[in-house]
């Protein structure tokens, strides 16, 4: 287990502005979130929030996985347990949020893709961003991981971090 969040860059990774005319620019962002399989007496799938931060800009919620099927929207009661996301973005949203919220996901590698200019990602301006992933589990713990990147990245660029408790490997990679 790593102490702290280690940023591991892929072999050919470049985190930096794409330069010059003709440089291919990434248009898609693919996020992989590994939800660890835990052997605990009482297991519930974690709530997960994925959002983008950029200095000087309002945080942008990309995806929230929660207990959407509970009667009378009772699953929203625990959204605040993803406390950093709740503070920066969640508390001003209404739920369910079209194109953003979905059901909780099972242990294993979970993938979600975004396209520049579409859906919750919107059109990204150039700059330094941080993709943030926060997970909170009922009768369990909470973990938050930060993945910094520069937009626009080169296609193929990947940022990886590894969680310690409520999250496993988390990565974001960029493609055309």
């Amino acid at each position: 287990m790593q102490r702290g969040y280690k940023l591991i860059l892929g072999s050919s990774v470049v985190i930096g502005a794409a330069t010059g005319a003709g440089a291919a620019q990434a248009e898609t962002m693919n996020v992989t979130v590994t939800i660890p399989r835990l052997s605990v007496a009482e297991y519930h799938r974690p709530y997960v929030a994925i959002w983008l931060e950029k200095e000087g800009a309002a945080p942008r919620t990309l995806s929230v996985w929660y207990d959407v099927d509970k009667a009378k929207g009772e699953g929203t009661k625990w959204l605040r347990d993803m406390r950093q996301w709740w503070r920066v973005s969640g508390r001003t949203m209404s739920f369910p949020a079209d194109g953003v919220t979905g059901a909780t996901r099972a242990p294993g590698e979970q993938k979600i893709g975004f396209t520049n200019g579409k859906g919750p990602l919107g059109r990204l301006g150039a700059g330094n961003y941080t993709l943030v992933v926060e997970a909170a589990r009922e009768v369990g713990g909470r973990e938050l991981l930060r993945l910094p990147f520069n937009w626009p990245p080169k296609p193929g660029a990947t940022v990886r971090v590894k969680g310690k408790s409520e999250l496993g490997a988390v990565s974001v990679s960029f493609g055309k």
């Binding site: 009378k72 929207g73 009772e74 929203t76 009661k77 625990w78 959204l79 605040r80 406390r83 709740w86 969640g90 508390r91």
Partner: peptide, 8 residues
Amino acid sequence: TTLSGNES
């Protein structure tokens, strides 16, 4: 002191 949901 910090709550989420439609009512609580």
